[in-house]
Each structure stands twice: as structure tokens, then as C-alpha cells.
Write a protein that binds this DNA or RNA. Structure first.
Lengths: 192, 192, 192, 192
DNA sequence: CGGTAAGCGAGACGGTACGTCGCGTCTTAAG
DNA sequence: CTTAAGACGCGACGTACCGTCTCGCTTACCG
């Protein structure tokens, strides 16, 4: 079958080291932030030589990007029977993954890199946001079928608005309410 | 009037150097991004000693923050007579200032810093967003008076949604349309 | 006789690789000097894995020592019939083997190592200098028998003086004459 | 006078750091040898940043060369009244400075470098050996005036022979006698 | 003649030192 | 008392070798 897979000579790269590197990267990233993580620190924390990191990644950016990649969990489409039940699931899940030190750092990095290397943000868009947008589409279609919302609602735009307000709330905390409540209010306004 | 102004002895600080520093900071910020600007480079580019920078700012962050501050233009509340006329002005102005390399860098910086030092984002919120939110409030109130939109519309939440979708669009370019058109569609959805 | 020689099982070590390693070591040693030779480079140049080198030698020092060992040619005692005929042969041979990039590197290495590990120089002394000293002794004894020089001449000391001046000339080039001429003048002075 | 001397702007290089660097270099050089000294270690030992070293020297070689330079003491021409009195002074002084770990390391380095960059040995020759050769010339001339040795003796060649045998003795320890005694015997043979 | 044990090439591994760069501070002389 | 210049201590960067450790193969011998 995959005839090229097992052909390369020499000692194979250690999956264990690989995992340790990614985990340490995420740990330290959450602790001290992107700027202040040093490759040396990651290597030490992972019990690994710097070489082993640089063999896999050309730079801190690449390493961090892959570390973030690695923790992308499965998207599951909630099905509670009501629109707001589904939405609450989505909000909770999104808030949970984004409203952490690590989440903030990742977003900051993506936005920062987006300027110099747009494909970086593109990856995040393709791998992370796009699938959720589609899951959201399903939720909205179901709600339309139940006549909970108008048939002409543009689910993509609604998703983008929700993502936008979450990004915004994350950075600026525009309200004194808990984020979840604020988000729910916003969605309420969008969906009338 | 300001009797204390001319009191301190010695050579006064050069306003010319000050300006050169800010301009160079913005130039290089737009060119290479926050991370890769070096104080040395700014000093050289501005024809100024590093001392002169560090006398005014304690760190790169402070310098960059002030440089960004310095280009904040006056907020003017548009008054075209119709809600959409006003909104178009607001959108155009916002897009114009944000959709540039410099704009992106600034946002990236704010979001990045927001994680480690929240007061950084707070400054941006207070000095930049808050006034615009208030201006937006005026525009919405006028529209309410003209019965263009419902009286119970929460102008702050609408503003946040718009800001959010702009932030989001800026980073992820979720659509193939020009940003302005996309934003306008979004606002349309919000205001029904 | 050597009943243990052919007993060990498994694949025997490749004499071809062995030779390639030694040759590559000497080549690179002459090209870039002891410090800058890397085992990796030797392995690559010899078309051999690093393992194959480290199975034979514990360190770069050992490898280089053996490589040098390997090129030690037979000492032949010249017999031209006159003292100076013999001496000329000795000088020419010595100059020829020492006044090359490789020769210099080897000497440098020996002297360098002599400080940290005296047995290194001792090996060179025992294996290289001692036999020549004895050959020289024969030449001198013959000259004494021919009454060309005084009977009480200490051949060892003369040999050491000659070796010393050659070492010295090699490093410092104290004269504008060709080395051979300079050496001959020195010997002349020693033997009156 | 020296019109160019005091013109350069900026903070002058710290003579104190300079001294600390040289001293630490010599200390560590004597302790662990050229190969095993690390710039980091020198910097730490000297209480100095690596930058400060690299601002002055491009490489370890350059640094070490200058450190060695720095400890060159004054040459004084002995005047005991007899040739052998003078010679004993010279021998003792030479042995004292060369027969130390540091002395050996220095010689090793010079010889090693001589191969790749001959001007390195040339410096040592010009700055160290040449002056001693001249001092030695004076000693020999005085002995000639006292009719202690033949008038046609070539003092340079004698000096070179002595230097050579010392270099040789230093590296190979060809005899069981103390070095001073061995050297004295050698000189005796040269001068008949 | 097929098993077994060492050798082989390739190359990844945990380290150490390298030489460079940027930080924010300090020290000059010049204004 | 500020300025331009630039040295300072520090610490991270990414590279190059070190000597060790797997890998999946030969390659020879021995039972």
C-alpha cells in the first residue's frame, strides 16, 4: 500500500520526544506567553536537546503553530432539540477553549502573524473555524426546520458575527457581565 | 499661563527628536512588525541616540503605545441625515485606519499584550473605542428619532458587534467580497 | 598459532572501511587541521557511518593518532660512505616528512596533547623518534670509526639538537635560507 | 600630538573589563587548556558579558593570542661577568616561563596556528623570540671580548639551537635529568 | 543451509559551545 | 541637563559537533 512509508533509513524520530516537545510548548506558552517562551526552556522542560526541536521546526513560530495544531479537538454538533440549547453548548465550548491564557496567546499569535504571513491565519481559518462554521450551519438549518428562526437567515454571517463578538469580548471585556451572558445577549440581538 | 513650563534648567527636550522617534517607530512598525522592530533600529532611523528614546519611554511597549496614540485622529460624528449615510462614513473611516499593515500590527500587539498586561488593552479601549462607541450612540439615537430603527435597540451592543466583525474580518478574511461590503451586510443583518 | 583470531562470530570488520577512514582522516587533517576536522566529515568523506568509526576508536584523538601511526614508513639507515652523505639523506628524509601541512598538524597535535596527556607525546617519542635516534647513533658510530668526528661525541644529544632545531625551524622559519641549508649549517656548527 | 587619540565619541571601553578578560583567559587557559576553555566561562569568570569579549576579539584564537601577548615580561640582559653565569640566568628564565601548563598551552597553540595562519607564529617570533635573540647576541659578544669563546661563533644560530632543544625537551622529555641540566649539557656541546 | 550474531549506513538523540543580536542601563564629550 | 555615540551585562537565538543510541540491512560462521 503506502510503499514510501517505511523506506527511510536511519533511526526514526522519537514520537515520545515529539509529544514531550509539544506538551512543554503548550505548558510554557500558557504560563509565560509567546514572547517569553525560549526554545531552551522548552527543550529543558521536555527533557530534550535543542537540536531535537530544531530538527523538526525551523523556528519558534513553526513549533508553536504545530503545538496549537496538535490540541485541536473534535468538533461535535450539539443536538439538544432547541436552538438555544444548541447555541448554549456552542458558546460554552467556545468560551472554554478560548478564554484561557493559552487561548489568548494563540489568538494573539495568529493575529500577529497574520500581518506578515497571511497563510498562518489561513491555516487557523481552514482547520479551526471553517469546520465549526459548518457545524453551526447544521444547527441553524435544524432551527429553520423547526420554524424557530426565519428561513432566510444567513448562517455563515451569524457565525462570523458571533465569532467576531467573542474575539472582541475576549480582548476588550466591554461589559461587566460574565462573558457567556454577554455573548448570549449578542446572539439574541442578532437573531432578533 | 503655564508658569511651570519654562522653569526647569538645562537644555529642553527636542520636540524635533520626539517627532522623529514617533514617526520612525510607526514606519518600522508597519514595515517589519512589532516583534522585529529594534530600539536600535528606531534610534538609527530617527537619527537619534538610544538615550533620547529611553528618557521618554521605559520600554518598547510604551514607545509603541505612544506612537500609536499619536496618530489617533479626531473622532467626528457624521451627520448625513440618514442612518446608512452615517454608517457608511463610520465604516469607511474604520476600515481605512485598520486595514493597513500598521493597523494590523497595532491590533496584534494589543491582543498579545492583553493577555499578560490587561491594562494595555484597557488603554486602547478607553482612549480609542469608548469615544467611538459614544459617537456611534449619537448616530443611533438620531436614527431612532427619525424612526429609522426600533427605539429599544442597544446601541452599545450593536457597536460591539460591528467592531467584533471588523476585527474578525480583518484577521480571517472570511469572504471574497471587499471588506466594506461584507461589513455593510453584517450591519444590515444586525439592524434587521 | 593465533587460535583465537578466527573464532569470533558475526560479520568481520571491513578492512576497506578501515582504510577509507584512515585515508579520509589524513586527507581532512592536512586540509583543515586537527581542530576543524569533524568525525561527521570524516565519516561522510569516507562513505562510512559514524558508528563504524566509533566502534574502532573512542575519540577523535585516538582516531587521528592511529591515522598518523598508519603512515609511519620504514626507517632506513643510510650508508653513503661519508658522514655528510649520510646526514644529507637523514635531513632530506626528515624535512620531506615534516615540512608538509600534515606534518605540521601532527606536530601541533602532539605538542598540544602533550600538555594534557603526556603519554600521547610519549607514543610519538617511542614509535617515531627513538628508532631514528638509534639509526642516527649508527651513522655517528660509523663516522667515529672513519675518524670523521671525535670519539667522545654524544650522538643522542646531537640527534636531539638536530631534531630541536628542525622543530624550531619548522615553526618559526628563523632564516631566509631554505630549511635544508639552514639545518645543514646548524649541524655543521654542532659537529664543529 | 596624537590628534586622533581622544576623538572617538561614545563611552570608552572599560580598561577594567579588558584586564579582567585577559586575566580570566590566562587563568582558565592554564587550568583546563586551550580546547576546553569556553568564551562563556571566560566571560562569567571575568564578570563580563560575552558581548564585551566579542567586541574586542573576533574569536577565541584572537583573544588567547592577545592574552598571551599581555603577559610578555621585560627582557633583561644578564651581566654576571662570566658567560656561564649569564647563560644560567637565561636558561632559568626561559625554563621558568615555558615549563608551565600555560607555557605549554601557548606553544601548542602557536604551533597549531602556525600551520593555518603563519603570521600567528610570526608575531610570536617578532615580539618574543627576536628580542631575546638580540639580548643573547649581546651576551655572546661580551664573552667573545672576554675570549671565553671563539670570535667566529654565530650567536643567532646558537640561540636558535638552544631554543630548539628547549622546545624539543619541553615536548618530549628526552632525558631523565632535570630540564635545566639537560639544556646546560646541550649548550656545552654547542659551545664546545 | 538456515540461524545467529556482529558489522554496516544512516541518521536521530541529549548535550555543550559557538558567535550574533537585541534589550535596557551606563558613561563619555559636546552642545 | 539633554543629546549622539556607543560600551556594558544579560540572555535568547539558531548552528555545528560531540559521542551515544536505534533502525533495517548485510555478511560470515557454525551447527
Amino acid at each position: 500500500m503506502n510503499e514510501s512509508a517505511k523506506k527511510q533509513p536511519g533511526r526514526p524520530r522519537s514520537a515520545q520526544s515529539h509529544q514531550a516537545i509539544l506538551q512543554s510548548t503548550l505548558d510554557l506558552l500558557a504560563q509565560v506567553g509567546y514572547e517569553r517562551v525560549s526554545i531552551d526552556a522548552i527543550a529543558t522542560h521536555a527533557g530534550v536537546g535543542k537540536t531535537t526541536i530544531y530538527r523538526r521546526y525551523r523556528s519558534k513560530e513553526e513549533l508553536v503553530a504545530d503545538a496549537i495544531e496538535s490540541l485541536r479537538e473534535e468538533i461535535e454538533i450539539p443536538e439538544t432539540g432547541t436552538l438555544w440549547g444548541d447555541l448554549d453548548c456552542i458558546i460554552e465550548s467556545a468560551v472554554k477553549t478560548t478564554l484561557t491564557p493559552l487561548g489568548r496567546q494563540i489568538l494573539a499569535m495568529i493575529i500577529g502573524a497574520a500581518s506578515s504571513s497571511p497563510q498562518f491565519a489561513q491555516v487557523y481559518w481552514t482547520k479551526y473555524l471553517q469546520p465549526r462554521r459548518q457545524a453551526f450551519h447544521v444547527v441553524i438549518e435544524r432551527a429553520k426546520a423547526r420554524y424557530e428562526i426565519q428561513a432566510e437567515t444567513d448562517s455563515d454571517m451569524v457565525f462570523d458575527l458571533i465569532s467576531g463578538i467573542m474575539l472582541y469580548a475576549l480582548v476588550f471585556q466591554p461589559s461587566n457581565e460574565p462573558v457567556e451572558v454577554y455573548i448570549r445577549r449578542a446572539i439574541d440581538l442578532i437573531l432578533k
